[in-house]
Each structure stands twice: as structure tokens, then as C-alpha cells.
Design a protein around this nucleic acid. Structure first.
Length: 673
DNA sequence: TCTGCATTAATTTTT
DNA sequence: TTAATGCAGA
């Protein structure tokens, strides 16, 4: 690894440091190698100190991998101070350092979307009658405004209709609540630093000084506020390298603006552009199919990916009767190919459009006792028991977090009902303080009667005591003691449908505690290791923990197409290549086929050696079977490279004849080409 | 205030 | 089909 031969373009990309640089890096063209080599180059050849360089990615996984690679090249000790983090993490660090100027108190909470939803529900409770999907709709609008650097007053002023005006007003209220709770949401992690840099030249200069060179991975995924942050961080000098591929832009729903690639040329006239077009990952046929497919999309930049690897096996299209068969077929395939071709479980990846699709596959894998790993699923954090415990942790760190307070004041039941909370809330509101702080105010006694008051005060003391203990004792011991004291284990048994379910939920809690233990160890040098750990968990930074251990693990990889970006696998199974699934129904309705095509492109280009595409004729949806049609993307792919294979037993004679014809046609095409 | 039953919505992707 | 939500009654 330490001796990496770069091709001409890669080498140009690494050595170009005098002007801003855009690297257009096709799938599998070695962009991570370029970024890591460039960091090395900057440090060893250009006189940069490691702590003057920042490399920004979008996922924790990518950041972790990049850090490990650079560490390997230079030695872990000599990259001290080098920033390799996600956009959100970088923003978090800026907010932490500058919290005073921003007007946020230390130990602020990070709201994940579950928290935001709970808050929005609370805000709507009073006068707006909205169900969950409407709340999410409003939150999405707010998120879009934030990503577009629009503040509440602008949103209100520019509202086009009543719906929008309502959302804009809720945006204002939401922002005020976050402020009061001493909390920020995911979008704020970018928005707040960007606004700060826009408004405060001194601080901007300070960070210019701190970060002299910036590298951005997956640049096509940046949204408006992220691009603005990049510009503010690098200033007019434009000491940056951004790497991106418009064909792999799959996050427009999150505000990503692939046109930021073009904007760069306008904003930085001295921008240099380097294209990486040699693919080192996939065999020729897979690459060709991907190219042919993506040629159906319009392009910002021309790019011709090529490979000098061998052509490889045909791409198999496995057509099965229904989704159950799909799962069974894939698992059987993996089992037999593993034996026949002497492969490891981890050589296989199963990719799909939506998280729910993993369920059937998981079941089949469990039955056949195949070890597997589902990655990128955030469902862990959606679990009630995890949300409960996280709320306790957040409240311990930030007593102003009313959101957390409301969630757990009565969990487990301690006779603090809705009415009591309501009264406490309005009192706190009127006094302009947090609910937790309000508990101890004498004035509260006028608003709450004996029973409610004592229940609330008991709860307050519980938190105060635990918080005091945390300052002294061993964190984990204190947390365990707290859980034992509130009887959370017992509570799970009372509220679960079966003891088995309760045990499972408790094991989730135990898992969370294990993460915290590990986090505290890893961040022992931090000012507040416990708070740091909780923050990292909020940012999902510990989702795929101990990546080194993990790479030793031998498990079939399951993930969504989105989660697969940036990864590669020898053998890939692409599930559900059907209309309404890929492209997804809602994308068809919204006429956003191009992004779905890119998603398919990403999936196909993950494969190094073989690709198998699954198509089911019927699929269960909301409990009833519906017929499905092969995806239009299959038609767009080069037919001579596809090998259709029907499930033999389920073939009618007609279908067999049809298949034969097709195969013959394919064979002819192959011979003639 | 809590429990149990009935009704209904969900399946796009994530830091 | 499953999971979450809402309502009625104790």
C-alpha cells in the first residue's frame, strides 16, 4: 500500500496544488487513493502541517477508511491534528469552538430526526392538527430551507401559499425551541457555522488560518449551505481539491446540488479540472453495462470510463416467481458458489432499494445459518428503548433539553401525566426557563398540586443525583445504577408483549451501554468523554464500530444502494430490479427517473467480478401480492451482456420457448460482435 | 391515568 | 402483513 502507482491523471490530481482543483472521478477510478496520496503529498512535499489540512466526506465510514489509509501511509503519529471527518462533524467542531459567539451553551444537544419529529409534534399539538406524515412533510420543508440558507423570516416572507406559510411559521417556532433547549439539529451543524462565517470576519480569518487546505470527497452530494461553507473556509485563495462524479449523485432529495460541480467553474475561474477515467474495479462487461445504462442520462461533464481488466462473465438476470423465491434463490446461490468457487461470505453483497427489502433476505439467511451484516440501518435508534435511554443521557448532559425531559419524565411510569407535564411546561415557558429547571422553583407550587408536584420533584432529584454522581464516579457504574434505580429492566418486561421481546429490548440497551463504555475509553483525553461519546452516538458515528475487527469478519454484506456508494464487492446481487421499486414508484410519479438510474448505476458499479440482478414477477405489498414488471433499466442495458435465467420449475412451455429464442438471439449478437 | 382492542397507515434513500 | 396510533372503558 505504501507504494502506490498512480496513473497520469491521478498523478496530476495529486500534484496540482497551486490552484483550486476539481477531480471528476468515475466509479472505481481510485479517487480515495488520490485523496489520501494528495494529503501525503501536501504534507511531505508542500510543507503543510497535518493540522492545516482538512479532508471532508459525507459518511462516517468513508472518513474512517480515509483516516486509516493516511495513517498507514504516514504513520499514525505523524498525522496528528489532521482533520478527516464528515461535513457534519466538522461543523460540530466549529460550533463547539465558537459556541460563545454563536450564543449556544456548552454541552448542547444534537437532535436527530426522531427528536425533531417529537419536537414538531409538540409544537403542532396546540393549534395544528397534523399526522405523522404531515409533520415529516413540514420538517422536510424546514430542512430544505436550512440547506438553502433560508432563515425563518425569509421563509415567511417568501411563502407562496398557506401551507408554506404555516410551515414557515413552524420553522420559526422550531428554531426558537431548539435555541431554548440549547440544541441543534443535523442541518444546523452545517447552517450555523456557515452563517457564523458569513457574519463574522474575525472568526472566518481564524479558521482560514487553521485550515489551509481543504479536500472534499463526494462533492456532487454537497448542498447549497455545504458549498457555501466550503467557499467560506477556503476563501478567495481556493486552496482546495474536490472530488466528485455527477453520475453518482443520489442525494438530491437531501438537497444535494450536482450543479455545484458547474458552479465551481464560475466561482473559481482558475479552477483546474482533472478526469479520472480508468476504472480499476470492475471487469469490462460490468463497466460497459453501467456505461450504456448511464448514457441515458444527461451529463454535466463528458466522461468515458474504461478498464483493462478482462471482460468477465455475463451479467445474470435471475427471474423468479415471487419475493420469497428471490430471497431463497440468492441465499442458495451464495451458499453453493461459496463452496464451488472457494469464496468467503464477505465476498458477497446483497443490495436493494429500500431498507424493508432486507427483511425477507434476512429471514432466509437466518434459516440457512449464513452469517450476515446489515449496514447503515438506523432502525436501532428508532427503537423506543434506545430513544428512552438516549433521552436520559441527553438530559444528564443538557438539562435544558425539554424534548428529552418530556420523553422520559414518565418513563418508567412515575405518575407524571400529561396534565402535570402541561402545567410544568407552561410554567417553565412563562418563566423562560427549561422544564427541568422549573421543577425546583418555588413558584411552581402555585401551579401544581401536591401529588404532581412531589412526583415531579422526585424525578428532578433523581436526575440531579445521577448528574452529581457522574461528576465523581465511574460513568458506566453510575448509568447502571440509574437504570437499576428506575427499574428499567422490569419496565421493559411490563411493557413488552413477551418476555422474549423484553429480553431483546434489554439487549439493545446493553448494546448501547457497551458503545458508551467504548466511547468513553476512546475519548478519554476529551474534556468530557461522556458528553463527547453521546454526541458521537447522535451523529451515528459509532454505527459501524471497530472497522478493523469488522474487515476480519466474514459475513455477507446487506445494504441499501445508497449505503453501498463508495464500496466494492467481488460478487454483487442486486435485488428487485423492477418497475416501481427501481425506479421507485414515487420517483416515477415525481418524474425523477434520472436519479434512480444513477442509483442503479451505483449498484452495478459496486461489482468487481460478477453481478446478478434479481427480478420477481410478484411481490408482496401491504400484505397482498401484486404483479411486477422488470425495470426499464434492464432494457436500457446492453442485451448481449445479459444472461436471462428463469426459474426452471415455474416456467410454462411458452415461456421456455420464448427464453430459448432470446438466448439464441443473444448468442447471435455475441458471435457477431 | 392506564389498559386493551380496533383501526389505519406504511415502503425511498441518511448525517 | 406488521407496526403504530386512537379511542373507549376501567
Amino acid at each position: 500500500m505504501s507504494v502506490v502507482r498512480l496513473n497520469e491523471q491521478q498523478s496530476m490530481a495529486v500534484k496540482q496544488t497551486s490552484s483550486p482543483l476539481l477531480v471528476l472521478a468515475g466509479a472505481g477510478s481510485g479517487k480515495t487513493a488520490v485523496i489520501t496520496q494528495k494529503i501525503v503529498h501536501l504534507i511531505t512535499r508542500c510543507g503543510y502541517q497535518p493540522n492545516q489540512i482538512a479532508a471532508v466526506t459525507f459518511t462516517n465510514k468513508a472518513a474512517k477508511e480515509m483516516k486509516a489509509r493516511v495513517g498507514k501511509l504516514l504513520g499514525d503519529s505523524s498525522v496528528k491534528g489532521l482533520i478527516v471527518s464528515t461535513f457534519h462533524n466538522l461543523g460540530l467542531n466549529i460550533i463547539r469552538r465558537e459556541h460563545r459567539t454563536i450564543g449556544i451553551r456548552q454541552n448542547f444537544t444534537i437532535f436527530d430526526d426522531q427528536d425533531s419529529l417529537a419536537l414538531m409534534r409538540e409544537l403542532c399539538k396546540k393549534d395544528v392538527d397534523a399526522d405523522k406524515s404531515e409533520l415529516i412533510e413540514i420538517l422536510n420543508r424546514i430542512s430544505a430551507w436550512k440547506n438553502d440558507l433560508k432563515l425563518p423570516d425569509q421563509a415567511i416572507a417568501q411563502a407562496k401559499d398557506n401551507d408554506e406559510l404555516l410551515a414557515a411559521k413552524l420553522y420559526e417556532a422550531y428554531t426558537r425551541s431548539l435555541k431554548a433547549y440549547n440544541a441543534v439539529d443535523f442541518d444546523d451543524l452545517i447552517l450555523v457555522p456557515t452563517l457564523l462565517f458569513q457574519q463574522n470576519e474575525t472568526i472566518r480569518e481564524k479558521w482560514h488560518h487553521r485550515i489551509r487546505y481543504l479536500l472534499v470527497d463526494e462533492y456532487q452530494d454537497t448542498n447549497t449551505s455545504q458549498y457555501e461553507l466550503v467557499k467560506l473556509l477556503t476563501g478567495k485563495l481556493g486552496n482546495f481539491t474536490v472530488v466528485g462524479d455527477d453520475d453518482q449523485s443520489i442525494y438530491s432529495w437531501r438537497g444535494a446540488q450536482p450543479k455545484n460541480l458547474e458552479l465551481l467553474q464560475k466561482d473559481f475561474p482558475n479552477l483546474k479540472v482533472v478526469k479520472l477515467e480508468q476504472n480499476y474495479r470492475s471487469c469490462g462487461r460490468i463497466l460497459k453495462s453501467a456505461n450504456v445504462l448511464i448514457a441515458n442520462n444527461p451529463h454535466l461533464f463528458d466522461k468515458k470510463l474504461w478498464s483493462d481488466k478482462n471482460y468477465g462473465e455475463p451479467i445474470r438476470v435471475l427471474s423468479v416467481k415471487e419475493d420469497n423465491d428471490e430471497a431463497e434463490r440468492v441465499v442458495n446461490e451464495i451458499l453453493s458458489r461459496r463452496i464451488k468457487q472457494n469464496l468467503k461470505y464477505r465476498d458477497f453483497a446483497i443490495l436493494y432499494r429500500g431498507n424493508h427489502q432486507s427483511r425477507l433476505i434476512e429471514r432466509a439467511l437466518v434459516i440457512k445459518q449464513v452469517p450476515y451484516k446489515v449496514s447503515g440501518s438506523t432502525s436501532f435508534f428508532a427503537r423506543a428503548e434506545i430513544k428512552d435511554i438516549m433521552a436520559y443521557l441527553k438530559l444528564l448532559i443538557n438539562p435544558d433539553d425539554d424534548n428529552a425531559f418530556i420523553r422520559i419524565a414518565n418513563v418508567p411510569r412515575r405518575e407524571i401525566g400529561a396534565t402535570t407535564l402541561e402545567k410544568l411546561g407552561s410554567y417553565a415557558n412563562q418563566r423562560g426557563i427549561g422544564m427541568f429547571a422549573a421543577i425546583f422553583e418555588l413558584g411552581l407550587e402555585e401551579h401544581l398540586t401536591g401529588k404532581g408536584l412531589s412526583a415531579v420533584r422526585r424525578f428532578g432529584q433523581l436526575i440531579v443525583k445521577a448528574s452529581d454522581n457522574l461528576k465523581r464516579g465511574d460513568t458506566l457504574a453510575v448509568l447502571n445504577e440509574l437504570l437499576a434505580y428506575i427499574g428499567y429492566h422490569g419496565y421493559l418486561f411490563e411493557t413488552s408483549s413477551s418476555p422474549k421481546a423484553a429480553e431483546y429490548r434489554w439487549s439493545n440497551v446493553a448494546e448501547l451501554l457497551k458503545w458508551i463504555e467504548k466511547g468513553i475509553e476512546d475519548n478519554a483525553q476529551a474534556e468530557d468523554p461522556f458528553a463527547t461519546t453521546v454526541t458521537k452516538i447522535c451523529l451515528r458515528e459509532m454505527l459501524d464500530r471497530n472497522s478493523e475487527e469488522e474487515s476480519e469478519q466474514n459475513e455477507v454484506q446487506l445494504m441499501t444502494l445508497h449505503a453501498s456508494k463508495g464500496l466494492e464487492f467481488p460478487h454483487v446481487y442486486l435485488l428487485g430490479m423492477e418497475e416501481e421499486l427501481l425506479p421507485h414508484k414515487s420517483s416515477i410519479e415525481e418524474d425523477n427517473i434520472e436519479e434512480e438510474r444513477r442509483l442503479a448505476y451505483v449498484g452495478i458499479t459496486r461489482a468487481k467480478e460478477t453481478l446478478s440482478i434479481m427480478v420477481a414477477k410478484q411481490r408482496q405489498r401491504y400484505g397482498e401480492m401484486i404483479n411486477s414488471v422488470p425495470s426499464r433499466f434492464l432494457e436500457e442495458m446492453p442485451q448481449e451482456d445479459l444472461d436471462w435465467e428463469e426459474d426452471r420449475q415455474q416456467l410454462s412451455d411458452d415461456e421456455k420457448r420464448e427464453r430459448g429464442k432470446n438466448n439464441l438471439a443473444n448468442l447471435r449478437k455475441m458471435l457477431s460482435s
